[in-house]
Simulated assay, not measured.
Amino acid sequence: MDQFVGEGRLEWWANQSICLEVYDIDITVAVDAVGQWRATGRHANALDAIQRESWDFLMEMDPHFSLAFPGEDRGGIMVRVVEAGDGTFTLTEAPDWDGSVNVTFDLT
């Protein structure tokens, strides 16, 4: 099993031109013999209150992020992020995600 342990970043794109937020992460990616990969991570730096609010908002709206590694200008792997209660998260590849999400805001 091959493994990568290092840094990466999660980018949340509103569309092809607008990246709303970028989060630096520490990540461990393991790839098995048939090419399936699993990844776990955590924020590289603790989020302050405003960053936490932004993270929670984006996760609630749509937990799909683009994953980028050092040296990449823009993330190329679309992942779904699931956060655990202890601040860690798992990343699963989302190659079929089409970029669409339905969002309803209650403005009352």
Score class of each variant (00 low, 15 high):
Ser100Glu: 07
Ile50Ala: 05
Thr88His: 10
Gln3Thr: 13
Asn102His: 11
Leu107Gly: 00
Glu7Cys: 04
Thr28Met: 10
Gln3Ser: 02
Ala39Phe: 07
Asp26Ala: 11
Ile18Lys: 15
His43Glu: 07
Arg42Ile: 10
Thr104Ala: 13
Asn45Tyr: 11
Arg52Gln: 13
Leu47His: 10
His43Ala: 06
Met61Tyr: 05
Asp62Pro: 02
Gly87Lys: 03
Trp97Asp: 05
Ala33Asp: 11
Gln36Trp: 15
Glu72Leu: 07
Ile27Pro: 00
Ala14Arg: 14
Ser66Gln: 14
Arg9Asn: 09
Thr88Trp: 09
Ala44Pro: 03
Thr92Ile: 07
Trp55Ala: 06
Asp98Gln: 01
Gly76Asn: 15
Asp56Tyr: 01
Asp96Val: 13
Leu91Cys: 03
Arg80Pro: 00
Asn102Glu: 08
Met59Glu: 14
Asp96Glu: 05
Asp106Leu: 05
Ser17Asp: 12
Gly76Ile: 09
Phe65Met: 09
Ala46Cys: 08
Leu58Ile: 03
Ala33Val: 14
Asp48Thr: 12
Glu72Val: 07
Pro95His: 14
Asp24Lys: 05
Asp96Leu: 06
Glu72Thr: 09
Thr90Val: 14
Trp37Pro: 00
Trp13Met: 11
Leu107His: 03
Val82Ser: 11
Glu60Ala: 08
Cys19Leu: 05
Trp13Glu: 01
Leu67Lys: 01
Val5Met: 04
Thr108Trp: 06
Asp106Cys: 03
Asp73Phe: 03
Gly6Cys: 09
Asp106Ser: 05
Gln51Trp: 14
Arg42Thr: 09
Thr88Gly: 12
Gly6Leu: 02
Val5Asn: 02
Leu67Met: 04
His43Ser: 02
Leu10Asp: 01
Leu91Thr: 00
Ala49Tyr: 10
Ala14Lys: 08
Ile50Leu: 10
Glu72Tyr: 15
Arg52Glu: 14
Ser100His: 04
Met61Leu: 13
Leu67Ile: 05
Arg9Ser: 06
Ile18Leu: 13
Val81Ile: 10
Pro63Arg: 04
